[in-house]
Nucleic acid binder design. Structure first.
Length: 505
RNA sequence: GGUCCCGUAGCCAAGUGGUAAGGCAGAGGUCUGCAAAACCUCCAUUCCCCGGUUCAAAUCCGGGCGGGACCUCCA
């Protein structure tokens, strides 16, 4: 197992990773509050941590991933009341949608998916412990965390309690001792779901759930905690205060990972700008794997610009959306799947060459990817190495001369296997190549408005022309197809075709 | 106002002290009846600007300029 180094947001530097137990990783990721359909930002974060989890597995760690669902929250209650739906039902419904959507992007289900509603007992016990320890106080039916009682408060986000108090924009609530104090428990209001507690009926505050659920499923101290950059303050700051306030210094997460945000042409995603895209839209336009590929083409901590444009008709009505960044990712994905398709066809026709030595260049991929992923999960470098392997495969498939027949075959089998294994670490290339290529072409046919039946007729006419050596006629048909946006690929097995797909901006 | 992050070729993107990965686009070539695909070669004396530290800086420090995030629900 190579030494893993990762960037710890708390220490603000890349550090060697030393798990609590050798070879094992306990990992917690802040999941969604399920009050609406998941959008591309949710997907981006989920993909980032799914990739980290897969990378850790690839590197030989046994990973236990806990990702929560927040199903008790102001936003859920508000939505439910507006819709006249039971809040818990609404939350459960969107949680299901969330998991279905994430599956489109190859995000694997977590090992444990705890919900607030099923951890009320643990939450109450934790709040009790904080009160007993003088870190929290009851105020009416609320319980607040006393920030002043936890001097390290603000360390994760690089602020001091004084700065935070001064900067607090919330109106001073006279039930709070300090402006920076935050609610652990909120007294029930009419029309809200509530649970019995020593402080009366109420419900948990937003941050306490994660402190309670990490302890319940990973223990008082665990290895990794992840989430979007926006969660650093106040969410993660508060989690630290709650957990370390209850269990002491040195407890809670040992390393903090935060993913960068997706920006849209330099702007933040927001509903008012009309650039919130849901997962369905993306899957339909370019396929889920294109987003996955786009994500792993960037380092998870970098902020990423996302190029997208709404297509409008003359009257200005939106007629469609072009995800340029994802289209580019999709093109590269097409390259990798094409190589795999060629490899599969070659190997299934003549076998894998059995046991024995392979060409040396083919043995480079796995160790190089291990190095890349061991360096703070550097997926772009891993992808570059995959590109080298794919190129080598194409070369060997093209040229049989000068290489022992069995060695060549074994080498190609080896490359196919390793490419898929690395793909697994990144969450890509898991589809059957022929199916991926077929579906991709179908999407392009749709997007570019190609008449597939007509293409078929052209191809047949051209085949007839070529058979009678009427090359002028054949070339004319090719030219016409080019005008329709179709490229022909003559192969020994016949003529295949693809939709031309270059950057047409 | 406070805290923090970023600025690498036409575009995307790695690289946190040892002399600029990779991809797209572009140019030339091999292959092909012609193409496409694939493959080969070329494509940043230089990393926003100005100073400084160092034998050595895209990488560290200081100061500009430009962009972004957080401090309020937000992936």
């Amino acid at each position: 197992m190579p030494e893993l180094r990762l960037y710890d947001s708390f220490q603000r530097q890349k550090v060697p990773f030393e798990p609590l137990e050798p070879g094992k990783v306990g990992m917690y990721v802040c999941g969604p509050t399920t009050y609406a359909t998941a959008h591309i930002g949710h997907a981006y974060s989920a993909i980032a941590f799914d990739t980290i989890r897969r990378s850790l597995r690839f590197l030989g760690y046994q990973v236990k991933l806990v990702r929560n669902i927040t199903d008790v929250d102001d936003k859920i209650i508000k939505r439910a009341n507006e819709a006249g739906e039971d809040p818990m039902r609404l939350a459960a419904r969107f949680a299901e949608d969330y998991n279905r959507d994430m599956a489109r992007f190859g995000v694997l289900p977590p090992d444990v998916e705890p919900r607030v509603s099923t951890h009320i007992g643990e939450i109450i016990a934790l709040i009790d412990r904080l009160i007993a320890g003088g870190k929290a106080y009851v105020a009416g039916g609320d319980v607040n965390f006393a920030v002043e009682s936890f001097p390290p408060y603000g360390k994760l986000s690089g602020q001091t309690i004084d700065e935070l108090r001064a900067g607090a924009r919330v109106e001073v609530d006279d039930r709070k001792r300090s402006a920076a104090d935050f609610a652990l428990w909120k007294a029930a209001k009419p029309g809200e779901p509530s649970w019995d507690s020593p402080w009366g009926k109420g419900r948990p505050g937003w941050h306490i759930e994660c402190s309670a659920m990490t302890t319940a499923h990973l223990g008082v101290t665990f290895d990794l905690h992840g989430g979007g950059k926006d969660l650093i303050f106040p969410h993660h700051e508060n989690e630290i205060a709650q957990s370390q306030g209850a269990y002491g210094e040195g407890t809670f997460s040992r390393y903090w990972l935060h993913n960068g945000f997706l920006n849209f042409a330099g702007e933040k995603m927001s509903k008012s700008l009309g650039n919130v895209f849901d997962c369905e839209q993306i899957a339909r336009a370019v396929g889920g794997e294109a987003l996955r590929f786009f994500c792993v083409s960037h380092h998870y901590r970098s902020p990423v610009d996302f190029e997208v444009e709404s297509m409008r008709d003359a009257a200005g009505a939106v007629t469609g959306i072009r995800f340029y960044s994802l289209e580019a990712a999709d093109r590269r994905l097409d390259y990798f799947y094409s190589v795999l398709a060629r490899l599969d066809a070659f190997l299934s026709a003549g076998g894998d060459g059995g046991e024995g030595p392979v060409l040396r260049d083919a043995e480079h991929l796995l160790p190089a990817v291990r190095d890349a992923l061991s360096d703070d999960f550097n997926t772009p470098v891993a992808l570059a190495v995959m590109g080298d392997a794919a190129k080598l495969a194409n070369k060997l498939l093209d040229e049989a001369k000068g290489v022992d027949k069995q060695i060549r075959r074994r080498t190609l089998a080896h490359l196919a296997r390793d490419l898929r294994q690395v793909g697994g670490a990144l969450g890509i290339l898991g589809c059957v190549p022929a199916e991926f290529l077929h579906e991709r072409r179908a999407r392009l046919v749709q997007r570019k408005g190609v008449d597939a039946a007509a293409v078929q007729r052209y191809i047949e006419d051209r085949a007839a022309a070529r058979a009678s050596k009427d090359f002028a006629r054949a070339d004319e048909l090719r030219r016409q197809l080019t005008e329709l946006g179709v490229e022909l690929l003559d192969t020994p097995a016949g003529t295949d075709w693809r939709v031309r797909d270059d950057d047409d901006r």
